[in-house]
Write a protein that binds this DNA or RNA. Structure first.
Lengths: 156, 156
DNA sequence: AACTACCATTGAGATTGTCAATAATTGAAG
DNA sequence: CTTCAATTATTGACAATCTCAATGGTAGTT
């Protein structure tokens, strides 16, 4: 009566394995820029959003503890890649925005990552990648506990 | 000229986020059994495979450093969930096999995990989940550097 | 017997995850 | 205006994880 489905078919296991493989290769791709995956994520989010990207929102979107964001922003700020500005409307919020250098570094980083992705995703046709993206988004944000990507019909 | 594709559409980011969300909920589901995700994986692999599952193979399949397997097996063994038997053919290899208790605990764990998965995957129809599994397998094992799941046509 | 290669193991050091406590700020209630 | 609860960023402690180098035991080869 034991289901005993092989773990190699388990979605959680596969997700973890795939995520790990990709993250490792991204990590190598970013090493020359002295960036790690997390730093890159924060930097990139700081590049987007002309609106105010607070640390709290960063934590929510990245599904990280707010205290981890502090350290990440600290390092990026000390390297002159992002600004940390208190929100005039609510001075509890610190708004994270990329500097000019930050934008350039982020762009460089993204190109390196794209190159790294080739080794992983170029086997599979774009339509399937779109499908994958869709599914992952559903799973990653199904709880709605965090970042906004849920109902994606807006103005864009 | 900046591509500046939003990070929320990035496959690496989505993989990490989705993996994290699922892992967290699995972790909670296993807490009552005093198991974490990694321990469960080792235990489950020890349940499969009447053949010899060595620690080296565990490390390869789970994409972990061999030294981490040691600690995981140590704990499972101390709790009487797995055996660590030197391979008679090559005594360098330690074959990891689940005890009777181990099998029962693994089964219990799997049921709890399945229940936890309902919250994540029941939205999406089975065919799409199969497609997802397929894609993840390709990505997770594309390098062939590790565990065998590549050419899946065997005897089963 | 000497040598090379492999496996499990140990240990150190960095990175990350988790959680509680605190100061500053805000908004609302009295 | 004062008090109170809630929220944000921050700090610090501790556990868990990753990464890497070194070691002892074993196997196969020459």
């Amino acid at each position: 009566m034991s289901t005993q489905r092989p773990l190699a078919d388990d979605l959680g296991f596969l997700l973890s394995r795939a995520s790990g493989v990709v993250a490792r290769s991204v990590s190598e791709a970013l090493a020359p820029l002295d960036l790690r995956v997390r730093s890159y994520s924060v930097l990139t989010f700081a590049c987007e959003e002309t609106a105010g990207m607070t640390q709290r929102r960063l934590a929510a979107i990245m599904a990280l503890d707010p205290s981890q964001i502090v350290a990440l922003v600290d390092e990026l700020q000390s390297r002159g890649l992002v600004h940390r500005t208190p929100d005039p409307a609510d001075r509890r919020n610190k708004i994270i925005s990329a500097t000019d250098v930050g934008h350039r570094v982020a762009q460089d980083a993204q190109q390196r990552i794209d190159r790294a992705y080739n080794g992983h995703f170029d086997h599979v046709p774009p339509e399937r990648l779109d499908e994958l993206r869709l599914l992952l988004r559903e799973i990653a944000f199904s709880d709605t506990s965090s970042g906004e990507p849920q109902a994606q019909a807006r103005d864009a």
